[in-house]
């Protein structure tokens, strides 16, 4: 009797476990909390493809899983400098998104970029800036300076989250110190090291979970991306995104197809799919960043497109897109980073 019961239970489990029938599959590996479920649903319906979605929290995590080989993913969404690395390493499939039907929609500003000039490998996903946000209910002073992160006033000490991202933090420190990006010059590296060591006691956490950290009241200041700042402000209106006078980092995430992807055709379909303006708008609507596809703004609420996070106020610094640093500088960065967090 119990044998029958077991058989029935396992049969039920197996039935439930069989995936719904579809023409094909597509395995996407994207940043966490970044993909609009509606976008995936729409793609699944339109092409009858079963999509699985997993997330990572840094380019480095994604890269290490992909480099390990045979990861099983078809699509990844690396940031600018990571795209450059991946192309150099031969990790990406040359899918010519620029020649795809929707390739004509690529905003000319994002066509001949340093990481994929002419868009032979990647389609735009979203772009934005990295600075920091402050809960202005709890801090009233001037926020448009990197001193908030690196030499904070007393009331902000111990109330700061910085991104657990060596490049972002290093580049921010370089801007604060007024030295060039990726500089191998010993004197400037020493200067940066000193700034970081002095700032560290004021930092409460190193984390990517910026929205949670600032909206739960765990911190008053968090290093953040503009779209995340927009979403934080939807929860707590007093959260303000800063445009530090020392400079601001720009970035762009891009849809790329991994070399040897099992579902190559579906992956290409997906690249084309995300370049349609109404679909790009779906991406932006969810994650809160601009997308680099011309004509998508008319599908977005004006309130979003005109928000201070998306359209910087006049006089704000121009976003700087930083290419990957040379390996010897990366090595020194990593040493400074470990030393900082020992």
């Amino acid at each position: 009797m119990s044998g029958k019961l077991m058989a029935a239970v396992s049969a039920a489990v197996l039935l439930w476990a069989v995936p719904a029938l579809a023409d094909g599959e597509l395995h996407i590996y994207n940043w966490g909390d970044y993909t609009n479920p509606k976008l995936i649903e729409k793609f699944e319906k339109q092409y009858n493809v079963k999509v699985t979605l997993d997330d990572y929290d840094s380019n480095e995590t994604m890269l290490s899983k992909v480099r390990a080989g045979n990861s099983g993913y078809d699509i990844v969404v690396p940031s600018d400098y990571t795209v450059k690395i991946m192309i150099e390493e031969g990790l990406l499939e040359k899918t010519e998104p620029n020649a795809m039907p929707n390739g004509k929609n690529i905003d000319p500003r994002f066509l001949n970029i340093y990481w994929d000039s002419g868009r032979h490998y990647t389609a735009p996903w979203q772009f934005g800036t990295t600075a920091f946000s402050v809960n202005t209910d709890k801090f009233k002073g001037d926020i448009n300076t990197l001193a908030i992160l690196f030499n904070p006033p007393d009331e902000l000490k111990g109330q700061i989250n910085v991104l657990d991202d060596v490049n972002t933090v290093m580049h921010a420190a370089e801007r604060y110190a007024g030295v060039p990006r990726c500089g191998a010059d010993k004197a400037s590296l020493k200067k940066i090291n000193d700034i970081l060591m002095a700032a560290k006691p004021s930092w409460k956490t190193f984390s990517y979970d910026t929205i949670t950290k600032i909206t739960s009241g765990d911190v008053i200041v968090t290093e953040q991306w503009n779209g995340a700042a927009y979403r934080s402000r939807q929860k707590i209106p007093a959260i303000k995104y800063a445009y530090p006078k020392e400079g601001i980092e720009g970035w762009m995430d891009n849809v790329a197809v991994l070399k040897g992807a099992k579902n190559l055709e579906n992956a290409k379909l997906f690249q084309d799919f995300v370049m349609a303006p109404e679909n790009a708008a779906l991406i932006s609507e969810y994650a809160g960043y601009d997308n680099g596809i011309a004509g998508s703004h008319k599908f977005l609420p004006a309130e979003f497109a005109n928000s201070p996070e998306i359209s910087p106020p006049a006089g704000s610094p121009t976003p700087e897109f930083v290419p990957p640093c040379p390996p010897d500088v990366v090595e020194i960065y990593n040493k400074i980073w470990t030393n900082l967090r020992k």
Partner: peptide
């Protein structure tokens, strides 16, 4: 060890903890 589409319940919770709860 998990690969594509292999999110288990504990991993799901882990992902959720890192979002607005």
């Amino acid at each position: 060890v998990a690969g594509p589409g292999q999110t288990t319940l504990p991993l799901y919770i882990w992902n959720q903890i890192r979002r607005p709860m």
